[in-house]
Every structure is written in structure tokens, then in C-alpha cells.
């Protein structure tokens, strides 16, 4: 049994993307939090410390820090350590500029709130041009 939820909003950037969700009620920065050589969150105080975000659809509350993530996204794609797509509660311009350069899916300001509607482990399909995110959750029996 599965349950599907649809989130909608203003069109995002980048191609359609699919992956398993990793949800975090925190900000994200590739420079502050992340080791792009391994794909693992490297800040010891980050709730996702030690976890890989490569190939995931990551859901962060906000974006964090400076401008470096824009260039870094290009390198993350080249190394295979980039998430398949980014969903933010609300992002700063840096992430969007990086996603445009690296051609990575990125969306924000969706309804209902992705932090509540998406759980780690859900299957997520992003269609940025249409402003649509589909979330498929497996329901345990009984």
C-alpha cells in the first residue's frame, strides 16, 4: 500500500528528478556542513552528521551561509556527490544560482510545507517546470 501526496508552488529550476527523501529541519551549505569529496555531512553538530546526501532528494528548511555552494554544486555533480534534487522551505539566491549553473532540480515555497509533508525514506519526484512535487510513502500493513 502506498499513499501519494502532491506539493505545489511557483516553478523551480533544473530538470525533473527522482530519489529517496532525506529531510532535515535545518539550513544547508556545502561549505559549512558538507564534505563534497565523500558526499557526507561533515559538521559534527549537524543533525545529519555522517550521513550521505548523494543522489537523495534533500529537504532543508532553509539555505545557510555564504556563496560558495553555487560553484560547489558543479563539482558535486562532477564527483557524483550531489543530491538528485533540492527542496527548501525557503532558499536564498545562492542555491538557485548554483542549481542553474549545474542543472540540478531545485524548488521552494511549496504547499503543503515540505518539512511536514515529506519524511525521510519517502520516494519523491520533482517536476520543477510544472511547480509540482509528488511524494510516495509506503504504508506498513496493519
Amino acid at each position: 500500500m502506498t499513499e501519494t501526496t502532491v506539493l505545489r508552488g511557483h516553478p523551480g529550476v533544473g530538470p525533473n528528478a527522482e530519489g529517496v527523501a532525506l529531510v532535515c529541519d535545518e539550513g544547508f551549505s556545502a561549505r559549512y556542513d558538507y564534505d563534497r569529496y565523500t558526499g557526507v555531512i561533515s559538521r559534527e553538530t549537524h543533525p545529519l552528521f555522517g550521513q550521505s546526501i548523494a543522489g537523495k532528494i534533500v529537504v532543508f528548511r532553509t539555505s545557510k551561509g555564504g556563496v560558495a555552494t553555487s560553484w560547489m554544486m558543479l563539482d558535486m555533480v562532477a564527483r557524483g556527490t550531489c543530491p538528485a534534487g533540492f527542496i527548501f522551505g525557503r532558499t536564498n539566491p545562492v542555491m538557485v544560482q548554483g542549481a542553474v549553473l549545474a542543472d540540478v532540480a531545485l524548488m521552494h515555497e511549496l504547499e503543503p510545507d515540505p518539512l511536514a509533508a515529506i519524511r525521510t525514506g519517502d520516494s519523491v519526484r520533482m517536476r520543477p517546470a510544472a511547480g509540482v512535487v509528488e511524494v510516495v510513502r509506503k504504508l506498513s500493513n496493519g
Partner: peptide
């Protein structure tokens, strides 16, 4: 413009 090799790495340098 912020553009250092630590952030750019080879793909950014190539760009």
C-alpha cells in the same frame, strides 16, 4: 566575484 579554486575545483575552472 567570488571564485577561488577551493570552491570551483576543476569543473568551475573549466567553466
Amino acid at each position: 566575484v567570488m571564485a577561488d579554486i577551493e570552491a570551483l575545483a576543476d569543473p568551475g575552472l573549466r567553466f
